[in-house]
Write a protein that binds this DNA or RNA. Structure first.
Lengths: 206, 206
DNA sequence: CCCGACTGAATGAATCCTCACTCAGTCAGC
DNA sequence: GCTGACTGAGTGAGGATTCATTCAGTCGGG
């Protein structure tokens, strides 16, 4: 009812329903886990009929993929842009760490899907790891670290790939622990604590 | 019925079948993921009929729990014993890291279950995280670190809990990455590389 | 303006397949 | 022959997906 401007009602910005379904699915997956979530639950949460879900997504699995793809694409894009402005590799890594935890800390449901639900199958892990988003992220950390090695800021004898994994793992664990914890603390400040130790560990002697 | 005599006869003395089922389940879960694994698959892999599985386990879920419990119990037990012999907190942490990766590196299927399948549901994560094994493990790292802080070996201003999570996260990521990687490299040596960086990061200035 | 034909997004009951789990039997050992 | 470990076909529930139907909205012609 109401003030429908027909210009926008023909194509409700396409996203309307699709977005609603994605958001609902994130919530439902986060609460019940992917395998225990019924498509009907998602539909109800989105205020939509069961069948409507299938007008926007081929299958339940595609919904999960879409959640991941959308969030990851945006994060990497935003990340790259922020980093352009920074020169010092140390500062870049600090920024990466903060962005990492900021993103996850900003949307608990999305964080749960990322930290828990997406890990629940080797198949998916392999897909998404191979598919590249994850590799791309690790590569970004690694490249930044190598930059710092070339500049003599970081110890040259360290294996950059291992270092990147290590940093990622540390941040990842902060996020996972934060999700599982009952106590509500701030996630973001931990980025700086982690980076303090990390940078101290990898920096070349002066 | 439960007469005194039958201490060990409730279950066959040497529990061949039970072990076989657990081993088979580990393999099947690792290959297909928990939710995509059929009990029938497990039975077949164990060389046993479907029904037999239910003579030893109450449900499919109980199988997963049993895999986790058995492996974790043994690991913690063995770990504690090894550590008793060591004094230097640094050395203790190094040993923990090595043990961590040795265990996972020794049985790829078990590692997959640990790194991937057990993470696949918040419910389980919370259970097992709360249930304590995981908390106990983190606590062990933390206590060792605090010991080092008291001894003046490690920087006193660091938050021991965060440090423990960080180390765990780093090791965890080494393991996960190793599992997902196609390339077959040795997992254990990474423990020392990680510890080099880590210890360098947390040690007090001399 | 209003009408009737038309469109296609949305619906949700019905379908249909997939398993986890059960239980009536079989069989081996004593 | 009895016991109890073992079997595996069968069952029933659950839940992803489908599709016949509805109906709000659009549009051209009068």
């Amino acid at each position: 009812m109401g003030t429908a401007r027909s210009l926008s009602t023909v194509r409700p910005v396409v996203n309307d329903k699709r977005e609603a379904i994605l958001r609902a699915a994130t919530q439902v997956f986060a609460r019940n886990g992917y395998f225990n979530s019924k498509v009907a639950d998602i539909a109800r949460a989105a205020g939509v009929a069961d069948g409507t879900v299938y007008l926007y997504f081929k299958s339940k699995e595609e919904i999960l993929h879409s959640i991941f793809d959308a969030a990851m694409e945006e994060a990497i894009h935003a990340g790259r842009k922020e980093l352009e402005a920074i020169d010092d590799p140390r500062e870049k890594l600090r920024r990466i760490a903060r962005l990492h935890l900021e993103r996850l800390g900003a949307d608990r449901d999305l964080a749960v899907v990322f930290q828990v639900e997406l890990r629940g199958s080797t198949k998916f892990m392999e897909e998404f790891s191979a598919a590249g988003f994850f590799a791309e992220y690790l590569g970004m950390i690694r490249a930044t670290f190598e930059e710092g090695q070339r500049a003599g800021i970081f110890r040259r004898e360290l294996n950059a790939k291992l270092v990147a994994k290590m940093l990622f793992g540390a941040l990842d664990e902060m996020a996972t622990n934060w999700i599982l914890s009952r106590r509500r603390y701030k996630l973001v400040p931990m980025a700086d604590e982690v980076m303090d130790i990390f940078l101290n560990g990898v920096s070349a002697a002066i």
